[in-house]
Design a protein around this nucleic acid. Sequence first.
RNA 1: GUCCCCAUCGUCUAGUCAGGUCUAGGACACUGGAUUUUCAUUCCAGCGACCGGGGUUCGAAUCCCCGUGGGGACGCCA
Length: 479
Amino acid sequence: MPCHIFGLGFTRRAGCGLMADSTMSQVRVRFAPSPTGLFHIGSARTALFNWLYARHTGGTFVLRIEDTDTARNTPEALASLLDGMRWLGLDWDEGPEKGGDVGPYLQSERNPIYEEYLQKLTDAGRTYEQDGAVFFKLLGERKVVFDKYKNADIEKVFGEPVVIEDAIRGRVEKTVEQDFVLRRSSGDFGFHFTNVVDDIAMAITHVIRGEDHLSNTARHVELYNAFGQKPPVFAHIPLILKSDGKGKMSKRETGAYIEDYRTKHVLPEALRNFLCLMGWNPKDNSEVMPIEEIIERFGFDGIQKDGARFDEKKLAHINTEYLRALNLETFAWMAAPILTEAGLIDESVDEDYLQAVLGVSQEKARDLEGLPELVGFFFTEDFAIDANARERVFKKGDPAARLRELLPVLQGLSEWTAPAIESAIDSLAEAQSVKKFDYFPVTRLAVSGQGGGPDLLGTLEVLGQERVVARMEKFATTL
RNA sequence: GUCCCCAUCGUCUAGUCAGGUCUAGGACACUGGAUUUUCAUUCCAGCGACCGGGGUUCGAAUCCCCGUGGGGACGCCA
């Protein structure tokens, strides 16, 4: 069967098979980053939207590494990228480590393919060489004009505008005014060329990328036209803007890298959910929802046109919601390394005790990052008494007296459970004609050094009678 | 400077394509109140926006034009 997706009559490549008959309408999207730095939040969102669209349509998600800039690529950047993708749960169907029928998936290994395509352009008279580089020759009238931005005379081409069919923005017309480089004098191929060639060779049907590429797209359509190829559906998604000030979220912005969120122990599912909401929404006020539901509902018509400012407070909120929703086993599994890292526990920790601590603490935790601070007193006798908390506690009533009254009661308690402790305090309060409330703050301060924290009765139960009594006695000596 | 995209609460957004149901809805943040052992949680309430000006229309957040504002691109980077 002739391969008709290559208009210029290429020999059949592996990719052609994918386009045969019944799978003709199969969606194929790609994420095509260049490994030149840490995995950026904006890139991650682009990857996410491609992934969502592929999963939504049952299509294929291709990961292609655009590493043609040999001077800037690093193996670390590639590792950061693949790691970040995995961390966010964005699995690719074809690409590095995975293979596929239209590989290789590293542009640095695709030179023969580029040579072949370049030859077609040359045969069609659409290229020329200048200063050792190969340029794409636009069609149209040429004039040398003064360019104010570049402050120089340049040759401009006045040709027909190109039409971009954008799934989000509609029909966009733009004229490409200058020839551009296909192959650099170094011998490396340029971005516009490799990007388009690969999208053709990999049978990409939808190009979902940041709006910053919209003006490049005109050049790309010129190439598609020159190749006699029908351009894919473009979908230019809005940029993520920095949370304050001007401009898009760029390098060196706080929170610009996926790595930042990993070190802060943000839950990947929470970050992913938040990122879904940056420029897309399901139109019915739903926000926090399982990824399966987002996949189900994702589509171009829910995508916003203007840039979205990054709001870390909303991310924090969504992260808290995910954290609270975790079952105890998962919560414990995630918490253990963080507590270990903070030096609070080691391998010798009693698993049941750890579970009990986390059980009473989970509903108070806002994030995993702050967990060591929240539960530190469970694991050491060497905790500080918070000065502000102490001041507040001693501001009203006679907490010292309450502590001295409660101490013997707790000491003599035969059943050490939260309900038993509570009823003991109830009886004591009644006998002393004070409110039960009066016993709590000072007790919390004595056993934890804090003014707030996990449920007090639960905390006492988990801590155990011996330690509670000892801590109260120790605290009493400071009064 | 040129070209392209965009324009609803402080922020993310619904509503705009098919004009009336919008005294513009939700969420985050903020403020107040209730509950509570807690500067936690939960609940309730409040605050708070259609960028401006023209036009079309009985009627415009919604359509058109012009301003203005924001974003992006203008590399032998991707």
